[in-house]
Amino acid sequence: MTTQLTPTATPPTSRRTAARRLTTRVGRVRELGIVVALALVVIPTAIVNPRFIQPQSLRDLLLNASIVALLAVGQTLVVITRNVDLSVGSVLGLSAFLTAQHFADNPGTPLLLGIGFGVAVGLACGLLNGLLVALGNVPSLVVTLGTLYVFRGIDYALAQGKQVNAANLPDALLDLGSSRILGIPILVLVAVVVIVVAAVYLRSYRSGRELYAIGSNPEAATLAGIPVARRTLTTFAVSGLIAGLAGALWVARYGTVDAAAGTGLELQVVAAVVVGGVAIFGGSGTVTGAALGALLLGTITSCLVVLQIPAFWQQAIAGALLLSAITVDRLLALRLAKALRTSEGTSHA
């Protein structure tokens, strides 16, 4: 570092870059941390049971994590703007049931059209959430808690206790859930594409950067001329759209769908996002981190099965992991704030 070379005349800028460097390093450490945690979980399991890292079980691992990872991408966009979308589980359920019923009632439906139908259902739900939050000026926690009930209720009312079985679904859809390209399951590829698109959008597009600005300081964002209401509406619409897509893929993956599909999934998704380093109060985090968080939670579940630890432990471990993730984040943030404060102090002196 330059400061060590010229201790007598410390230029304020170099101190400041030091602090900035720490900022980026913390950001990188965060994602590296999840990768290390993944390794800590996978390596011992693989030593105990080498079959755990065979291609087939790795494929299952990715497949199981991909739906939560998809939802986590949409949730990340929302959480970055200092909001939360608790309705994703219900949107997924509604979209899954309607998609399955659509395919069952219209056997000739082209694959993409049917999936597009599920996506449209999700988009409509997301738009409703977004309109209520952005125009009603109501906290998103409450709005999406309300729509969590409403969408699930509509789901049950439409299903009336029925379920759609794999026998009534077109083979093309079920193939989508099980077939692979170059050895990688298609569902995983879909999730990866969505993650990459969202990551590039958040990193390199103006409106993507504006989401961070909104989450860091909504008032300042408004004063800076950012269309806060419109961006908020968009994030909820995208979160709903992705949940709709996840619902259609859920049908492809599991084949049998009733009105209870995806119940309680919202908490898993929020957990994945928070473990993945997205601050619950907005302004920071990446979709890659959130997707890695989903993968970590899914991997832990699989490891418990392989290690023959009772599945009862899974939930307790997920909870403990979430708590330690936010604790570590907090401690890092405190250290960072301290470093920034010292650099500010010297530059003013």
Binding site: L267, A271, V274, I280, P310, A316, A318, L322, L323, R330
Partner: peptide, 29 residues
């Protein structure tokens, strides 16, 4: 966790929601 570490209660209690329910399952299966 909320007062000493200054963590947001929403995130903390989503974590303990899973943790306490998990402990209940561990205790009684």
């Amino acid at each position: 966790l909320v007062t000493r570490l200054g963590l947001p209660s929403l995130a903390v209690t989503i974590g303990t929601l899973a943790l306490y329910r998990g402990l209940a399952l561990v205790v009684l299966g």
